[in-house]
Amino acid sequence: MKKILVPTDFSTNAEKAMQFAIRMVQGNKEAHLTFFHVNSDLIPTGISKKELEDTIATQLEADLTRLKQRVIEIYHKMIVGEGEVNNDVLVKYGSFNEEIVSTVKELGIDLIVMGTLGASGLKKIFVGSNTADVMEKAPCPVLAIPAEYSNAPVTRVAYATDFQNVEQSLGVVVNFAKFFNASIELFNVYFAGARGQTDPSTFDRNSFLEEIKKQFDYEHFTLAFVRLKEAGDDLIDGIEAYVAQKKPSVMAMATNERMWYEHIFRPSKTKQMIFQTTCPLLVVKQ
């Protein structure tokens, strides 16, 4: 996890994502940030190809100047010294989501760090936002920084898992946690008495943790189980309960299709949304 793309629309939310990414790699000589802006302004119709190209070129030149200045301002605000962060800046014209995906492939990006563009809570992150579209289409992990995030130190990453193919995505979580030397708590949400689920009473926690520690050469693992008690509770209820109690620095989840998390996080018409998390969310594709 060395090449990190940080999209920005110059909003306050995007600046929080930029600050998180800077803190994440500060002092790490192997990591590299690319601050990225996509200009999607509409161009008047009825103009010649030359006029179109000149208009886009002028806009991108202005965007590049603005982006460079914004990066300098954030470095000064964060008191980041010269050489502490490896970075470059890049601007393109086109569709926001399409340009991000193409840039990830073009540059071999390992991680995208972006603001949630006004979304609040996990349920809203996944409903009708640019963040959701990027999570669906990008071929790399995406770290979403909520608008309410307060730049707290990252000390513990919580990873929600059903223990199916956990090794495929856990490696990404470990690489992320190593930036902060943070602990990783794997937690499983289960329904009491349901078939096909892990039974905490018979699960060999010690053997599982020792195997994981050895496999990933990382010692900072713990394991927790969250039981759903009331009829009608679902996975999001268990995650809400866990986050409310444990307050992790970052939440991590793995998914292989958008329908899965759209189903989980679709707001209920009869249930008030109580998940107003202020911690970042790392989504890893299996």
Score class of each variant (00 low, 15 high):
P7I: 09
D9T: 12
A14C: 12
K16Y: 03
I22W: 00
V25L: 12
Q26T: 10
N28Y: 12
A31R: 05
A31G: 06
A31K: 09
V38L: 01
D41Q: 08
T55E: 13
A57G: 09
L64R: 07
I79W: 03
G83T: 05
V85C: 13
N86Y: 07
D88S: 15
V89H: 00
G94P: 14
S95Q: 06
F96N: 06
E106P: 05
K123H: 06
G128H: 08
T131V: 05
D133E: 14
D133V: 13
V142S: 00
I145W: 02
V157L: 10
Y159Q: 03
T161V: 13
F163S: 02
F163P: 00
F163K: 02
Q164D: 11
Q164K: 15
V166Y: 15
E167G: 03
V173M: 10
A182Q: 07
S183F: 00
F187P: 15
F187T: 13
V189G: 13
N206H: 05
L209C: 08
E210C: 04
E211A: 11
I212K: 08
K214M: 08
E219D: 14
H220R: 14
F221R: 02
L223E: 02
L223W: 02
K229T: 15
I236Y: 04
I239P: 00
V243D: 01
V243F: 04
A244N: 14
M251R: 03
Q272K: 06
Q272R: 05
F275V: 07
T277Q: 03
T277H: 00
T278R: 04
C279N: 12
L281R: 07
Q286K: 15
Q286D: 04
